[in-house]
């Protein structure tokens, strides 16, 4: 291996690592706030990428109908509850968000010449379809069992993952898709060719991470999520409802997932089930951070990305094996170094 190949592999590793970092942050966030180990995180990557591909292909993405279906279900449940409690003033909001928004979006997608719109508009539309599924998913699946033990939440999480992969196959078919790059520019840095898309991925990840940091440090809603993660009861007494925190968290997680999908779709071919593997690598990174530390998870993600790209050079058949084996020494090290601290009053 010469310097040029090493640089190329490093570039690959960093690009993938940036995506894994985003997913790892989302996993840590979801676990901290809701105690759900969010296996379907990867599905949002695939849904985001493939919805964009369908929009570019000029067809109505089937995910829009899924969104409408989920919205209708939530409207039914929340609407009935509001009626039973005589809170009729809530009804307009419930119907507007859960039925009005998806139908409006479908109408927009039918009317607009989506295929010929600029790429930015297509990306925004794809996100508008996929991201609201996050809070709807929380409302339908996880909110009713919010106080269940972590294991139950994990089992349900696996079930959601399987269901979403199955629906993915139904919606998008078995063929993989690749979307056009955001930019065709190429930069020569010394002996290295850096593609425009790589720059896009790195910059977008960096901006997103900084934006998340600002969100959690500066805004009241971000602080409310952190507060829920630190002390659920205390947050509840401040009027921060666990349901609101859960929906907000799943919104952020879905946004991160779908955006990651849109970003990597021009680099790798995305199949309906590609998301799982990408999500799992984000999960390895999150484990390196102990499912608690954001900076450690991000460092872990870059490590995973680099390990993956270099092992694909030396032992390409084993690259996933090597990455996932990384989790064993990490867990050993963690279980040996962390002492179990009793909850102090």
């Amino acid at each position: 291996m010469d310097v040029q190949i090493a640089l190329m592999l490093a570039q690959d590793g960093l690009t993938n690592g940036a995506i894994y970092a985003l997913l790892a942050l989302a996993l840590v966030l979801v676990f901290a706030v809701t105690r759900v180990i969010f296996i379907p995180q990867g599905e949002f990557v695939a849904y985001g990428a493939l919805t964009l591909a369908m929009l570019q292909g000029g067809s109505m993405p089937a995910t829009a109908w899924l969104l409408a279906g989920m919205g209708a279900l939530v409207a039914l449940i929340d609407g009935a509850t509001a009626l039973r409690n005589g809170q009729t003033q809530k009804l307009a909001g419930v119907l507007g968000w859960n039925v009005g928004y998806p139908l409006g979006l479908v109408a927009l997608l039918t009317l607009l010449p989506v295929k010929d719109l600029p790429l930015v508009a297509q990306v925004v539309l794809a996100l508008a379809v996929v991201v609201p599924m996050g809070p709807l998913l929380y409302r339908l699946v996880f909110q009713p069992i919010a106080s269940a033990p972590v294991l139950i939440l994990l089992i349900v999480s696996v079930a959601v993952h399987v269901a979403m992969v199955g629906m993915g196959l139904l919606f998008f078919g078995a063929e993989g898709q690749r979307t056009p790059a955001f930019s065709d520019a190429n930069f020569e840095v010394g002996p290295l060719m850096v593609s425009g898309q790589t720059v896009w991925v790195l910059m977008a990840s960096l901006v997103l991470i900084l934006a998340l940091y600002q969100f959690f440090e500066r805004t009241l809603y971000g602080k409310a999520l952190r507060a829920t993660a630190i002390n659920r009861n205390g947050a509840r007494l401040m009027g921060i409802s666990p349901a609101l925190a859960g929906k907000l968290t799943f919104f952020v997680a879905a946004l991160i997932g779908a955006l990651s999908g849109v970003l990597i779709a021009p680099i790798t071919t995305i199949y309906y089930d590609t998301g799982f593997l990408i999500g799992l690598k984000g999960f390895v990174a999150a484990i390196i951070g102990g499912l608690a530390s954001y900076p450690l998870a991000a460092v872990g993600a870059v490590l995973v990305g680099l390990l993956e790209s270099f092992s694909s050079f030396w032992a390409s058949a084993f690259k996933d094996v090597i990455v996932f084996t990384l989790i064993i020494p990490v867990l050993m090290w963690r279980s040996l170094t962390t002492r179990h601290v009793e909850e102090e009053e």
């Binding site: 602080k223 409310a224 952190r226 507060a227 630190i230 002390n231 009861n233 401040m238 009053e345």
Partner: peptide, 21 residues
């Protein structure tokens, strides 16, 4: 509450601001 239920890893200021959530 009896247990106070503060947000231990957040600053005093942030704790207070969240009281007004």
């Amino acid at each position: 509450p009896e247990k106070r239920e503060l947000f231990g890893e957040m600053s005093i200021e942030d704790n207070l601001v969240l009281g007004a959530f």
